Amino acid sequence: MTDALRLPLRAGLNQQEITGVLGEPTGTDRFVPDRVTLVFRIGAAECYELSCTVHEEQGLIYLTMHPTPLPD
């Protein structure tokens, strides 16, 4: 998925590496103590939201994307 969108992300990247590629997140969420989800808005004309969950030891472990705003 990331290759198709030309996003240079891969499993294991740490938070600093991700923000180095995507810039500062538009938001963050912490649901459990050992990981943080970074939320980014990507694109201009047809933007979408990309959420990257980063584990403190394993790095990037999960990502999701959806259009913004969400369709009705």
Rank of each mutant, 00 (worst) to 15 (best):
G43W: 12
R30F: 00
V36C: 04
V39G: 00
G12M: 10
L22F: 04
T2I: 04
T28I: 06
E17W: 13
L63K: 00
F31Q: 10
M65C: 07
S51P: 10
P33F: 06
L5G: 03
Y62V: 00
R6E: 14
R35P: 02
V32M: 10
S51V: 00
V39F: 01
A45T: 10
P8Q: 12
S51D: 12
G23F: 02
E57F: 05
G43D: 08
P25L: 04
G43E: 12
L38Q: 01
L50K: 00
R41C: 07
L63D: 04
A4F: 14
G43P: 15
E17H: 12
Q15Y: 08
V39P: 01
L13G: 01
H55S: 05
F31A: 08
V21D: 01
D72R: 13
F31C: 07
L50V: 01
T37K: 05
E56I: 11
G59H: 06
L50W: 03
L13F: 11
R41L: 14
L9H: 03
T64K: 03
P71T: 07
Y62H: 11
L50P: 13
A4D: 15
D3H: 10
L7A: 07
G59Q: 05
I42R: 02
R10D: 11
H66G: 11
A4K: 10
R6Y: 07
A11T: 09
E56L: 13
D29R: 09
I18C: 06
Y62A: 07
R10K: 10
T28V: 07
A44C: 08
R30Y: 01
L22Q: 02
I42Y: 03
L70N: 05
E24S: 14
C47P: 15
E17M: 14
T2A: 03
V21L: 13
P67I: 10
T68E: 13
G43S: 05
L70Q: 10
A11W: 12
F31S: 08
T19Q: 13
V36Q: 07
T2H: 05
I61S: 02
T28K: 03
L38V: 00
R30S: 07
G27M: 09
V39Y: 00
Q58F: 14
T2Y: 08
T37G: 01
I42T: 02
G20Y: 15
V21I: 13
E24D: 15
L70Y: 08
E17Q: 15
G20P: 15
Y62T: 00
G27V: 09
G12T: 06
T53L: 11
T68W: 12
D72N: 14
H55A: 08
T64S: 12
Q58H: 14
L60G: 04
E24R: 10
D72F: 14
R41D: 13
M1T: 00
E49R: 11
A44G: 06
D3K: 10
D34I: 07
P8D: 15
N14L: 12
L7Q: 05
C52N: 05
L38Y: 11
L5M: 15
D72V: 13
P71Y: 04
T37C: 06
C52D: 08
L9G: 04
Y62D: 13
L7W: 09
A44Q: 12
R35K: 09
